[in-house]
Amino acid sequence: MFTELNSILNITPDNFKQGEFVLISDRHTDGSFLIHHFLSFYLRARCKVCFLGLVQSFSHYCAVSQRLGVSLVQAKEKGQLIFLEGLKESLSVLIPKEPNTGSQALDFLRDPSAGLRSLYEFVRASVSHTGGVEGVEGVEGGVEEWGPPVLLVDDLSVLLSLGVSVGAALDFSHYCRATVCSQLQGSMVMLVRCEAEEEEDDGDEEGPERLLKGLTHQCSLTLQVQGLPTGYCRDIHGQVEVCWRNRHGNGQQMQKKLFQYKVHDKSASFFARGTSSAVL
């Protein structure tokens, strides 16, 4: 959890807006540090978290979170965290050892054209009821109460590489938003990776660019992480544009702020452009 980012977004684990859909996009650089931030943030906020980790293994997320001061193993044991390990699960779908083992969540791998309904069912089951934790209530003698549900996806554009169409991915995120953000008043964070080259704005490309546009229409806050246009720099890792999209109609429609950042070992610093400690 990066406290500097919290103050920029004006949130704390005790006090944050519910029903938010945060969209993180990265281009020319790696924006996954923000996913780790939100994961540790919502775990500290005592939310029930459903994490779709499609890019890395559980131990990777675990190791990063450990540095940020949150234990994923404990959270998982307590039933606070439901973790879908895409790398492992996909293997059991593609090379089934025993019939009917593992979840149905990644059934789309067999037939990507069928859509992501099964993945949505998994999300809905994980966030909607507390029944999934009954088995581990022995820890403190009772089921712990968790706050509003949170869905984190790292990252959605991987689905495109697995053969899912942009439309299906947008349908999935729509359903998740309707369930998590509107019905259950929870929050949602999704990461989308864009290709390094900016594509021609034809409107007919079936790629992450179109997915990003579609999600931008849905979300309430975007964090666009970009590499520096001038190239790699040791002291500034990139810039992030924070954009609040007003969905509840008052005054200004959109508010934008641009920061440069540097990711440290256990934290990240954000500063206005040109005010890096290396420059001043």
Binding site: D201, D202, G203, D204, R210, K213, G214, H217
Partner: peptide, 8 residues
């Protein structure tokens, strides 16, 4: 209509 979502 979100015009940037569709073909021209």
């Amino acid at each position: 209509l979100h015009s940037d979502m569709h073909q021209r």
